[in-house]
């Protein structure tokens, strides 16, 4: 069983924070297939948050095919995200390392690297989104 944390003022909607924490737990293998998520009442009591927020997060995870509610029993993990990251993403990680090495070699500091990453990330995101709009 996992426990959720809420970061107020992070700008991320509370329901999304729960979704992200479940995904992260699935990636890290903290949650595995067949594990139960905390009941809505338990999350509500622990975090003092609106039950609809938890419900919305669990629905989103269900929609993604990651969990499944069983009436009267709770919500259970359908599949893990663990193995398609560490192993499958190794080549990407190696590329990224090489890129980071080059960036440092060209004299970029941490902040500049981060800024460059995020501006590029956002630009690519926008490009993808506008392409989607056109089709």
């Amino acid at each position: 069983m996992i426990e959720f944390l809420l970061h107020p003022g992070s700008g991320v909607a509370p329901y999304l924070q729960i979704v992200q924490q479940v995904r992260q737990a699935l990636r890290l293998g903290v949650l595995r297939e067949g594990d139960q998520l905390p009941t809505i009442k338990a999350v509500v009591a622990q975090l003092a948050i609106n039950p609809n927020t938890v419900l919305k997060a669990y629905r989103e995870l269900e929609h993604e095919g990651l969990v499944q509610p069983r009436p009267g029993a709770g919500t259970f993990v359908l599949r893990s995200l663990a193995d398609d990251t560490v192993a499958a993403h190794e080549p990407l990680r190696v590329d990224l390392r090489a890129w980071l090495h080059r960036a440092r070699g060209e004299g970029l500091d941490d902040d500049s690297i981060e800024a460059l990453f995020w501006t590029t990330f956002r630009a690519a995101h926008r490009e993808a989104a506008s392409k989607e709009d056109m089709t």
Partner: peptide, 14 residues
């Protein structure tokens, strides 16, 4: 305050 909010949210579930 936190305990009160917890109780309040629980009662909305129940």
């Amino acid at each position: 305050r936190r305990e009160f909010l917890q109780g309040l949210m629980e009662s909305t579930v129940d």
